[in-house]
Simulated assay, not measured.
Amino acid sequence: MLSTRFTKHSLVTEVHKTIQPYLSDQSFSIDATMGNGHDTLFLARHSHKVYAFDIQESAIKTTRQRLENNHCLDKVNLIHAGHEEMLKHVPVNKNFAAIIFNLGYLPHSDSAVITQEKSTIRALSAAISLLSTHGIISIMAYPGHTGGQTELQAIIHWCHDLHNKDFVITFIRSMQETTDSPRFFTIQPPTN
């Protein structure tokens, strides 16, 4: 099933609002791109255990500090690796309730270091294999930076392939959307 809905909220707010009902104090979750740790902290507050990935040491340092300041560090495994390597670093026998991808580049950092379409698609495919039958994958893509439009098109193509396998795909759009605005997708396993 493929659907589109619009929101008046910022898409960042909408991600957390959309994901929260899938989480509980028994949930396992993944932040595939920890960045400055905002999504990691959100997941830690609403999950039993979080596995958070980033390739940049500065992202891990900032996230660690944010988690320590909020007394949540013990609930998170900070992993210095690309999200495409998640199958090597998470327990594959767990069913993950939520997996968040916030793509692009690390804010206030080197904007040349960006997520890449090939590794992102590999990571998304890995995420599908880890997702609970009642879980959700959240993808925030940013077409406004160099390489962002290419990555967005690869994600759209990947979503269309999933649609053919009966996954539930939702495009959530901002009422104030422009060409460069972020794009938010959710993916859920087929409904029986």
Rank of each mutant, 00 (worst) to 15 (best):
G135D: 09
K75H: 13
D39P: 01
A98I: 09
F185A: 05
A81V: 07
S132E: 08
T186N: 06
N164G: 14
L41M: 08
I114Q: 02
K8T: 14
Q20D: 08
K49R: 13
Q116H: 13
I79H: 09
S138A: 15
A52C: 09
S27R: 01
N69G: 00
L73T: 05
L73E: 11
C72E: 13
A141F: 03
T178G: 04
S27E: 11
L130W: 04
V113E: 11
M140N: 10
D74V: 03
V15P: 04
I30H: 06
S125I: 01
L73Y: 03
L41W: 10
F185H: 03
V168R: 09
Y105K: 07
D54S: 06
N36A: 04
D180K: 07
R173H: 09
E68F: 11
I100P: 12
M140Y: 03
N192W: 03
R66F: 10
T7C: 03
T33R: 11
A127S: 15
H38A: 10
S125C: 04
I128C: 08
I30S: 06
K94Q: 15
A44F: 07
N36V: 02
L2C: 03
P189G: 02
A81I: 08
V113P: 01
H46M: 02
H80E: 11
I136Y: 01
K94W: 03
R5D: 00
H157N: 13
C159I: 08
E68W: 10
I100Q: 03
F185N: 07
T146S: 14
H38G: 08
T115P: 02
H83D: 14
I121Y: 02
F184L: 15
A44Y: 05
P107W: 07
R64T: 09
G148S: 06
I169W: 09
K49P: 01
N77L: 10
E68V: 05
P189T: 05
V15E: 01
S138R: 07
T120H: 01
H9Y: 13
E57H: 08
L2P: 00
S174M: 00
N36D: 06
T33H: 10
I155Q: 02
G147N: 07
H163W: 11
E68K: 15
D54A: 10
I136R: 09
I60H: 04
T7D: 01
L124K: 06
N36R: 14
R5F: 01
Q176P: 00
N70S: 15
T170K: 13
I60M: 15
A154Q: 05
R66K: 15
P91I: 07
K165F: 07
A154N: 00
